[in-house]
């Protein structure tokens, strides 16, 4: 492990609440350990701001191990920052250099209103899942887990899609503000598995229409979502969603 430390200039988006206009503010940080995570660097800043009687920067975070999907910000123009397949909480300061200026702003999208500073409202993603991102099975009465054999390769493909953490980086990075990687991942997971097949048509129609209703855009194959996805979700899932949707629309 390194014990290097660096000095940084930060440009952070500050916005009091949804109604107020935001602005970038500049902050200086000295002697930041390269072993710190990005959020720990923000903790250090917030402790400093608090001691100076200033308002600390509000940001969402929870598990700090890259799985809950709560954290996220656009760092130097890239959602979750420069490291591939890394959430903001797992980004470490060793990837920055002494004297760097880091610009930090919230995930911006029409469907994600800003609540304060770096905190946005991503409840639109929940509503897409509520539209059909499930298999309609009540508790109890499920057949034995081994009753339906599922080829290992299929289970793995479904797992690749199911790994989505719902952070919304795909939306923030898409020039169209599309949530198609997010929606495609759930539709893929459930349509690949035999358990999800009975409802595949209704699911595709309902989830795509919920996506449109929430104000998300559509995919024009920019692949920005795939590039920033902290879980490496492939845009093949968007293709699979499109196939599911087309099949459902024509043959529904």
């Amino acid at each position: 492990m390194t014990t290097k430390s660096i000095d940084l200039s930060l440009e952070i988006w500050r916005q009091k609440d949804s109604r107020t206009t935001g602005v970038f503010e500049s902050y200086q940080l000295k002697s930041i350990s390269a072993d710190m995570s990005f959020l720990e660097m923000l903790d250090v800043l917030n402790e400093k701001l608090t001691r100076e009687g200033l308002d600390p920067v509000a940001f969402d975070h929870d598990c700090r191990e890259g799985i809950c999907g709560m954290c996220g910000a656009v760092v130097n123009g890239i959602a979750h920052g420069p490291e591939p397949e890394t959430t903001l909480c797992q980004l470490h300061m060793r990837h920055f250099c002494n004297g760097d200026t880091i610009v930090i702003e919230p995930f911006r999208s029409r469907a994600f209103p800003i609540r304060k500073d770096l905190i946005v409202d991503r409840s639109a993603l929940d509503r897409i899942i509520q539209a059909g991102g499930y298999i309609s099975v009540n508790t109890g009465g499920a057949p034995d887990g081994n009753a339906i054999p599922i080829p290992s390769a299929t289970a793995e493909l479904a797992m690749d899609a199911a790994a989505c953490i719902g952070c919304g980086a795909c939306v923030a990075s898409c020039p169209n503000g599309a949530a198609m990687l997010f929606t495609g991942a759930k539709i893929s997971q459930l349509s690949l598995l035999p358990q999800g097949r009975p409802e595949r048509k209704e699911r595709a129609m309902a989830m795509v229409s919920a996506m449109d209703k929430e104000g998300f855009g559509n995919c024009t194959n920019e692949r920005e979502c795939e590039a920033v996805c902290p879980k490496g979700i492939s845009i093949r899932n968007i293709a699979r969603m499109n196939r599911e949707f087309v099949k459902a629309s024509f043959f529904g």
Binding site: I135, V137, G145, I148, P149, A155, A158, L190, L193, Q195
Partner: peptide
Amino acid sequence: IDQCVAQGVPFAREYGGTL
């Protein structure tokens, strides 16, 4: 386990398709 499989939880599988 049965309930979770029915919900579409992608548990790891053997090559023969069993859990």
